[in-house]
Design a protein around this nucleic acid. Sequence first.
DNA 1: CTTCCAATGTTATTGGCGGTAACATATGTT
DNA 2: AACATATGTTACCGCCAATAACATTGGAAG
Lengths: 197, 197
Amino acid sequence: MKKKDAYHHGDLRADLIEAVRRLVEEKGPDRFTVADACRLAGVSTAAPYRHFADREEMLLAVVREGIRAQRESMEAALIGREPGSVEAVVAIGRAYVAYATANPGVFRLIFGLSRTHGEHPDLVSEGMRTYGVLLGQMAHRLGRADFDSEVMARSLPLWTFVHGLSFLLIDQKLTAAKLPVDVETVIRDTTRRLLAD
Amino acid sequence: MKKKDAYHHGDLRADLIEAVRRLVEEKGPDRFTVADACRLAGVSTAAPYRHFADREEMLLAVVREGIRAQRESMEAALIGREPGSVEAVVAIGRAYVAYATANPGVFRLIFGLSRTHGEHPDLVSEGMRTYGVLLGQMAHRLGRADFDSEVMARSLPLWTFVHGLSFLLIDQKLTAAKLPVDVETVIRDTTRRLLAD
DNA sequence: CTTCCAATGTTATTGGCGGTAACATATGTT
DNA sequence: AACATATGTTACCGCCAATAACATTGGAAG
């Protein structure tokens, strides 16, 4: 019924979200300012408050979009792979890390503003859907119908591994310390180890 | 010669660092303000600039202290353990995660303000010293005299694992999603897998 | 002990930001 | 054509980071 966002500006809400996303990538989540986003979108500094309650809601919109984009890249990576195979799990991990390194600002935002995450059930369920991509492969691999404790126990190390690798890569802890890392190899080898019986 | 910090206030520099540390834990690294730290220390808002160039330098001081504290807890965890043993590596990982969960604000700060880290060689080398604790155990375990590529390749997955686990725990991704996790068990089991021949 | 300089701290000020209120304009519904 | 509502702007407030000008303290030199 209501399209909510095709008025004066065209689609200010969407334009602002895109501006925020760009600024978060360019300057980092902490250096983002509402005023900058307004300048990028070409509106006054009061305009955003017709679409967002406050600065944090603007960032949360980018978080929602980011979680979804990362999950979709993981799901796309599964296409054509044998369900539950090592290659399938490797593909998920590769996609996870690739999203983080390609969108470090948004990735940091997703996992950085976490104090507020618990208060946003939709974000929690969105995150669970992402984790579910891995859980699904693991359940298939273990021949389980549901996500039982065994599926959980075998999946968590894989998640934490790619998660930690993502952070170390985007924080440049490895390159700064002159530690050459072949990302593809470390993902592949470690996944194999963690999937071994 | 110069003690730099035992004047009017006693030791304002140290007091401010402690105030920043407390505020970073209480409110999060992003919500920290210089003005708050001044109120905690009982000085005017201009006083800090006699001891720090700007807000970021105040945070960097806490980062330095945090990196050191985490490393010391890891080294302490090694005392009385067989060098290079599974138990030694587990102890390091446990200490790493324990520091993160006990000091989530500082931990996030250490790995969050990373854009500036590369510009601070002292922080990079401090971080390497921490990683060196793990590398030392791994070299001992593999019977290598130096940190060669094999030591590196076997250490990195362990680091990324505990690093990712730390973030998922403090970001409450697991508890928010009602995923019960026995931290001790997942560290122990995963370390064993990653150390297996 | 006195003098004086450098280190340390305060008050006053500037510029920028997040957010609100009052006002202005466009939209589409009747 | 007229009006209610959604959207956008201008003016404003309080807070903060940072700087400058001024005040005070501690200790070294005589």
